[in-house]
Amino acid sequence: MNWVLVPQAIITGILNGSVIGLIALGVVLIYKSSEIFNFSQGHLLMLGAFVTWWFAGASEDGNEIFNFPLGLAVLAAFLVALLIGFLIERIALRPMTGQPLLSIILMTLGLAQLIEGLVSIFFGIQPKSNFPAPIARTETFKIPFAFAFQGNIFIKKLLVIAFLVAVFGMILIVIFFKFSRVGLSMRATAEDHELARSIGINVPRIFGLSWAIAGIVATAGGVLLAMLTGASLSLSTVVLVAFPAILLGGLESLPGAIVGGIAVGLAQELVSTAKLIEIRNSSEIAPYVLLLIVLIIRPEGLFGQKRIERI
């Protein structure tokens, strides 16, 4: 390890990790309510970023319909995500009720391709580097820290904003699940569909709702990433780090997704402080190595629900 790089790596890792955690949360939301692992989450995220970009009037080709400030554009994109969530349930999932879970999961892979195709058609395949951001991407904080490289830690201001938004979003979701009426129905439905139906819960509507919320969460994640890197089709690949975060946290645990996200963020950054170039360049597989180790020790993940077995 290059010890002087470690303090910087820890800070950046946690900040990045919170965004990864938020993205992971979207997948967990759907998994919890319907046991469907949504492989299209990354594409929903990418779509959310493009839709926001579009509402913000950033296409600058002279035919923009909207020219919203960023905040409003994000809200509009949330609305679109909400509708798309319900639409996916109605058009793609409901007809598949009763089919094997695997077919439904494969359908989400198809959905991912469909979204990618539609985005390419509507917005073009070129990356959009002019994604609106509240402050310039280059602005940084400088925090003096004796043990850090050249005595300072540098933090992108945008990354701090992303962190705060991600944390706020996660708290909101956890509170919603724990204390709201709808959250209770969603937790109940997640446990037993037939039982939920037997007490009068509209199970398809709960599925639609969980897709809608997951879509909004994805959009939020997409906007945060796009602020940092611009909007592009390749945004969807962020799920490659979100998936290990999900499994690490335990697939059906909301706090697990958050902790998993931060663990993955840290692992990536810390590996890139290694002295050996071979290790430094393997930061992409670091989350998976970490995942492997955790799963050997705790197969249900860090926060996975233990099956309650009595009777």
Partner: peptide, 17 residues
């Protein structure tokens, strides 16, 4: 609903209606 508390199990019977 095994992972819900006793009271949550009861309350949901009412809210679902």
């Amino acid at each position: 609903f095994q992972h819900l508390t006793v009271e949550e199990n009861l309350v949901i019977g009412a809210t679902a209606r």
